[in-house]
Design a protein around this nucleic acid. Sequence first.
DNA 1: AAGCCGGCCAACCGCACGTGG
DNA 2: TCCACGTGCGGTTGGCCGGCT
Length: 353
Amino acid sequence: MHHFHLTSIHKTVLCWENNKDREKEMGRSPCCESEHMNKGAWSKEEDERLIAYIKRHGEGCWRSLPKAAGLLRCGKSCRLRWINYLRPDLKRGNFSEDEDELIITLHSLLGNKWSLIAARLPGRTDNEIKNYWNTHIKRKLHARGIDPQTHRPLDYSSTAGAGAGAIHTICTNANDSSNKAKPHSTAPEELSSSTPPPPPATKKRLNSLASAVVAVREEEESTNNSMSSGVTTTTTTAEEVQVQLINNKKRINGDEDGDADADLDLSLCLTVHRPQTIIRNNSTNSTASTELLSSAPSPPANRHREMFLSLGFHPDARHACSSTGCSAPTAATLDLLSDPSSHRISRGSSYWL
DNA sequence: AAGCCGGCCAACCGCACGTGG
DNA sequence: TCCACGTGCGGTTGGCCGGCT
């Protein structure tokens, strides 16, 4: 992603210099002055200017970039053009079947968090995935009889309560013979060989992940209460989740500095590892999930158990639901969870062994 | 050939959030 | 604490293109 990498210090200095120049002028100009600015499709010359500038100076400081690069565009427009179209590491071409299934799985877990989903698909942008979802996958799910928003069966959502959760899609996929008899066709080995490190996390990204975890927990709490299943959960604030994420990661790694990337991965890992969501459906579904379990990868290692426990998750996926009358995660979830290279929590993959 | 229609996707827009003064 | 700014995200728009009549 960062082919023309600049250190944060370099970026800071560049921005500082630009800010000084800007502040010499009277007042600050709005981000996008619609007058005197080009809009619409980018010309080849504009693309070349943008590429050349970023090759020389790196990404960042988008506000000052257009002027410095000699472009009559607003910074947002430049950023979008670069991220969604000009970046050299973008993957071109059609989405593979594996990518389709991964998107569906991630969407069932994360909802319309396109940037988070994109982080799991190397070379794909959030915009691209969003468009693809709206034009292809929605239709595909409809054809399967699945509501693309709720990931529940179309004829089910109108009659059933909130009991059936998002993960139902995974179970349904498992029963779909067109899916190579696997709920999630991206094997861990494939992921580990093709998935590069995710982009640097920011506090904002971590915050949205934490919010997503909280939202899911709240939804599950209300769902479980309405189902009178005896499952009780405690609602955790986003801040608490963040603190837990960082503290756990520090404890595990012995890394007091805190690595933002690792935090992101840890939080994604935990977002994915949501036994209570997975639990619900399988209890009312076919035996397919049971069969999946028998072939599922091993649960997290001992060092994980503490982490999952502290976050309110059952550490042993295979027994995630036994005490609550629910069944365990599908192989799909465990596939995601067990991918060592995509969860750079530890400095080495041995952590996951 | 011309007009219509729908799909696709790049780009835009508005908003939220983090940061720094 | 407030405010301005920079950045990123998700929803929406609009133009292009191919298929159909």
